[in-house]
Write a protein that binds this DNA or RNA. Structure first.
Length: 160
DNA sequence: GCCAACGTTGGC
DNA sequence: GCCAACGTTGGC
């Protein structure tokens, strides 16, 4: 991790759990459970810190885009759903003494003035210079670092 | 619903 | 360790 990358972007399908759902959650907070990708897990387990800025992105949506601002609200801890046989995210191969999947809590801090769409992100010359993982071809990561400058820019776009 | 891109699995 | 098959993601 570089020191300037202390900001993150997380994806969620608004039909399943959108930014408004996070706002309505107790303390505007939810465990970011169900992530089953090692790179995304590593970001949560190893690199996220309480208070880091998080952009909440709506994927598989019409339109897709950044919907709101959030923050990391806990230290990393094992994702309890991996041990829950009734959960879609159950992982029978994960051992309680060495959990495979980790998460952090995410708390909504503020909605953006409006949704900033994926198309806008792609068209913006400032963001183009920041080489966002989100905008790379074929990107599928659900948790990724984002430069702080990109957060500032996206907030500005939302207010424009 | 389609399909390209990607990560994971498992046979060898 | 290779790589084909498979399942999933996510934009459109």
């Amino acid at each position: 991790m570089t020191e300037t990358a202390r900001a993150w972007l997380v994806k969620s399908e608004p039909d399943v759990f959108g930014f408004d759902d996070l706002v309505r959650a107790p303390d505007h907070t939810t465990p970011w459970d169900g992530v089953r990708n090692y790179q995304a897990r590593n970001y949560m387990r190893d690199d996220m810190r309480v208070g880091d800025v998080v952009l909440f992105y709506h994927s598989n949506a019409n339109p897709a885009g950044v919907a709101g601002l959030a923050e990391v609200a806990s230290e990393p801890y094992p994702d309890p759903t991996q041990f829950d046989a009734g959960s879609d995210y159950h992982d029978a191969a994960s051992d309680r003494s060495a959990p495979r999947w980790w998460l952090v809590d995410v708390r909504a801090t503020a909605p953006l003035a409006r949704l900033v769409t994926l198309a806008e992100l792609r068209e913006d010359p400032v963001l183009a210079g920041l080489d966002l993982p989100l905008l790379r071809r074929g990107n599928r990561l659900s948790v990724m670092p984002i430069p702080a400058a990109a957060v500032d820019r996206i907030v500005a776009l939302a207010e424009s």
